[in-house]
Design a protein around this nucleic acid. Structure first.
Lengths: 160, 160
DNA sequence: AAACTAACGTTAGTGTCACTAACGAATGGA
DNA sequence: TCCATTCGTTAGTGACACTAACGTTAGTTT
């Protein structure tokens, strides 16, 4: 029961404090903490939310396309769907048209759960972005989107 | 040596694509990849750089204060210092004034190595931020700094 | 028809990351 | 002298983002 001992870096050198890659990492870490803490109070994790959103907005899908839509690796998606199916939030059944596939679909309970998580997430995003004004939040989203879009699809400059 | 199979999320629902916490996570991931790949070409990792910068800018320090200055957890710092000391980039010796402590200091070779890494990192940040203009980069740094500053020091809203 | 290629879901395992827990040694205050 | 605290260190945890391999199923080629 000792208090956590890392006060982040109150006195880091400026060279580190202003390094964009480091700032991104730290901001992401805080974001992850806020979101994970909030979601865990609802017994959920971000992947659960991502999967539910994809199913709701884009309809039932095989695990492979769900993987593409959420960014969850297909080998990790198995467990996520297991957990959601265990709680009857999604249904997983074999695809009669292609027996390699499972079709995953949202149940009514899943849709209700999703709208609950949605409210929760909205307020978590708000916690996260508290120090920024409305326009600043849009600015941030815009800048990050352009960054991500630019780097998406690039794997490694110096690959084998 | 097969190609990576995750095209990120080309067709994720908008609700996910614009979620700030998710954007932060993805941007940070890309940033980490770019930086880690660049540094690994120089046989270094970001913690090595952070430690060297802290030693250079703020002078010799015990591992505990170095931990506070870099944000590296003190239990992880051990290995970082080991690796740097193995290459004679830093020196670790017991503090005569407090025999619990080690004093870690930069060697001349460490200083040279740091300035090399500095150049490297400058160009990596540039790669990372390529899609953004100069003012936009400053904007991003400003927004992220305020975000991080705001959340720094907060541990867990729902701690035991 | 047979053979090859590829996609699917699944399991197991890897390396990194941020962190907790515990330790022995040393310090400093009551 | 007792006690809490700090220090460096080791070991281990849980989440994450993968890779590798598998058996199954589906298309495509010949």
């Amino acid at each position: 029961m000792t208090a956590p001992d890392m006060p982040d870096d109150p006195d880091a050198p400026a060279r580190l404090r202003t390094l964009p890659s480091r700032l991104l990492g730290m901001a992401a870490m805080h974001a992850d903490r806020v979101v994970a803490a909030g979601l865990s109070a609802a017994d959920a994790r971000k992947w659960h939310y991502a999967a539910l959103v994809a199913l709701h907005d884009l309809g039932p899908a095989s695990q492979a396309t769900l993987s593409r839509r959420t960014g969850i690796h297909r080998s990790d998606l198995v467990a996520v769907i297991n957990e959601l199916a265990d709680r009857d939030l999604v249904e997983r059944r074999p695809d009669p048209e292609d027996r390699r596939r499972n079709v995953v679909s949202l149940t009514p309970a899943g849709a209700r759960w999703l709208s609950h998580l949605d409210d929760l997430l909205r307020s978590l995003q708000d916690d996260l972005l508290r120090p920024l004004s409305g326009p600043e939040r849009e600015q941030l989203v815009d800048l990050l989107t352009r960054l991500v879009d630019h780097h998406t699809g690039i794997r490694r400059p110096t690959e084998g």
